[in-house]
């Protein structure tokens, strides 16, 4: 998968929040085989004041994808993105503009607005969006080259709530990298997303809050690989009735 000119071979992006400790986080990163880790930048961690934690993250050989988690307006997200660019010396930004504090669903109006401003400023955007096709088009029009539709609300672990819409999105944007972001709870959810033809999966809570985060990171990587290979291998069509898997031809003739 090619994203903004960078070749990405691991279809798993991992968030870095909520782990029991940075040591466990680093072990989970290794076990997942991820190449891209997301980092949340709150205002109090800007200006390098979160240095201790960020230094630990930099010890991994991963691309850091800062995000604007917790921003509720386009302006807040824009300001945070600029801080992140300075702090992490990257023009990649996972753009989140939250519209509702309970469901954490994206404010797609603020998202498109922020995307326009940041793309014009040279940012390479990873927008956290819904599965809405029109919003997707507007984000591409604003300069995004990747779309990150939600599977379910952030941290809910519900899996894909609307697989049909994600399938439609895949068909409608055949050449745009699509990354399912948020809502993955179990390895089977991640495999499901990949079976739909998604290019990658971004997850955090499902690993961080597992009883054994390192074991779950490994399981997710395996599931994502299985889902991807299953998609490429073109699964059979579903049928309503049984079809015998044992051929009639060559049966012993007992008559």
């Amino acid at each position: 998968m090619q994203i903004y000119g960078t070749q990405i071979t691991s279809p798993l992006l991992l968030g870095t929040a909520q782990y029991p400790s940075p040591t466990v986080l680093n072990a989970a990163i290794k076990a997942s085989g991820t190449q891209i880790i997301t980092v949340s930048l709150r205002r109090e961690t800007a200006n390098g004041s979160g240095a201790g934690f960020f230094d630990l993250l930099r010890q991994n050989d991963c691309h850091i994808l800062p995000n604007t988690a917790g921003c509720h307006t386009a302006q807040e997200a824009i300001t945070t993105a600029k801080m992140a660019r300075e702090l992490f010396e990257t023009d990649w930004i996972k753009l989140e503009v939250i519209g509702h504090s309970d469901t954490l669903q994206p404010d797609v109006f603020g998202l498109v607005k922020a995307a326009r401003v940041l793309a014009a400023d040279g940012f390479k955007l990873f927008p956290y969006t819904t599965e809405d096709l029109v919003v997707g088009e507007k984000l591409l029009d604003a300069g995004c080259e990747v779309l990150m539709p939600w599977g379910a609300p952030i941290g809910s672990g519900q899996g894909l709530r609307n697989p049909n819409a994600l399938r439609a999105m895949r068909a409608y944007f055949p050449n745009t990298p699509l990354i399912v972001d948020a809502g993955i709870g179990r390895p089977s959810d991640a495999a499901h997303a990949m079976e739909l033809g998604m290019d990658a999966v971004l997850l955090n809570t499902a690993v961080a809050k597992a009883g054994d985060p390192v074991g779950m990171a490994r399981a997710m990587a395996l599931a994502i690989k299985a889902g991807r290979e299953g998609f490429l291998a073109e699964p059979m069509e579903r049928r309503d009735m049984a079809v015998p898997s044992t051929p009639i031809l060559g049966m012993a003739d007992l008559g």
Binding site: R42, R43, E44, T45, S49, G50, A51
Partner: peptide, 11 residues
């Protein structure tokens, strides 16, 4: 629990 070295008052 915030990964930060800021001493500013509670936000």
């Amino acid at each position: 629990m915030i990964e930060s070295s800021s001493w500013r008052p509670i936000t």
